[in-house]
């Protein structure tokens, strides 16, 4: 599939997944991939604790946009910012002629009362701001690093809940606008991130069905993070392999090589089984990202992952990007 067509399918891409699956890394790689295709990209972080800026080797993001990776030649810029509920509320109130009371509303803790009275109001404020960015064409692609799943579902479901709770007024109008954005595949889609392990796969499948059935949001491909790259020859005995290569091994080396190879083969078999489970239970296009043998990821890793993502997208079949998720069949999560 043409990567630019893929990237232009919807201006807003929400990257969602359980904690620890590498959601933020995938958001960064997607942004970098888009920039390398010449699309100006804005990454939005909605939780304070995200390590997004660190992936680009930059200081923490703020409510004001900053550059994460500068433009260079045909490569466009990646910018980033946060949207936190308190900041979004302040801006919202100021835009609605309530500047005078806005600080007080936030500082007295009244926001807690209001957000309990109307659950989801915080999420609406965030998504409302995303919608405003989309409307103003703030970037060719807007990547939202969503809150951890579980919460990602509430985050997106809150719109409908709020429409029930708040039946009139500006918040109701805001919720309607957001719902329109979420349910329009030409404007917004969700990319789910998972790991090739049992529990994350189960959760990705459940989240996918919930998002489609209850939020009505369109799903992009599911991204499986942390796949050990295939290395041919790991099933060959190290001593034989050394003989074949015309060399010999030092004492202890054969054991270490054999144990390490066995470990990787086991992990790969496990990953393969989980990929098969995922394909069977979630029939949507799948992209894979390689495991990075490093405990700290930085800009060079993001580039590497962006390249891997691009390869994956090029390999995807052409055709409608609408999600082929069907109603749960037998054996699917209830």
């Amino acid at each position: 599939m043409d990567p630019r067509q893929f990237l232009r399918a919807s201006r807003v891409v929400i990257v969602a997944g359980k904690g620890g699956v590498g959601k933020t890394t995938v958001a960064a790689a997607l942004a970098r991939m888009a920039a390398r295709q010449g699309l100006s990209t804005l990454v939005v972080q909605v939780e304070r604790a995200s390590g997004l800026a660190r992936l680009f080797g930059r200081p923490p993001l703020t409510y004001v946009e900053s550059t994460l990776a500068p433009a260079a030649g045909t490569i466009a810029e990646v910018r980033g910012r946060t949207i936190t509920p308190d900041d979004a509320l302040l801006e919202y109130l100021e835009d609605h002629g309530l500047r005078r009371i806005s600080r007080r509303l936030v500082s007295t803790g009244a926001m807690d009362v209001v957000s309990t009275a109307a659950p989801g109001i915080k999420d609406i404020l965030i998504l409302g701001k995303v919608k405003a960015l989309e409307r103003s064409e703030a970037a060719d692609l807007i990547v939202v690093d969503a809150p951890a799943a579980g919460h990602a579902i509430t985050f997106l479901l809150s719109v409908r809940g709020l429409l029930d709770a708040v039946r009139v007024g500006p918040i109701n109008a805001q919720a309607r606008d957001v719902l329109e954005l979420l349910s329009d595949p030409a404007r917004c889609s969700v990319v789910l991130v998972t790991l090739p392990e049992e529990t994350p796969v189960n959760e990705a499948v459940e989240t996918a069905f919930t998002l489609e059935d209850r939020v009505g949001v369109s799903l992009g491909p599911v991204v499986v993070n942390g796949l050990y790259p295939l290395l041919p020859g790991l099933d060959i005995d190290p001593v034989e392999a050394a003989e074949a290569a015309g060399t010999s091994l030092r004492p202890g080396e054969a054991e270490a090589l054999a144990e390490a190879a066995a470990f990787r083969r086991d992990r790969q078999a496990l990953q393969q089984a989980q990929l098969e489970r995922l394909d069977e239970r979630l029939p949507i296009p799948r992209l894979g990202l390689p495991f990075v043998f490093s405990a700290e990821l930085g800009p060079s890793h993001v580039d590497l992952l962006a390249a891997a993502l691009l390869d994956g997208v090029v390999g995807l079949a052409d055709g409608p990007t609408e999600s082929p998720v069907r109603a749960p069949a037998e054996g699917s999560p209830s």
């Binding site: 020859g233 074949a244 290569a245 190879a261 990787r264």
Partner: peptide, 10 residues
């Protein structure tokens, strides 16, 4: 070679 893979993996 297979030995190359084995060392890369290790």
């Amino acid at each position: 070679s297979a030995l190359g893979s084995l060392f890369t993996n290790l």
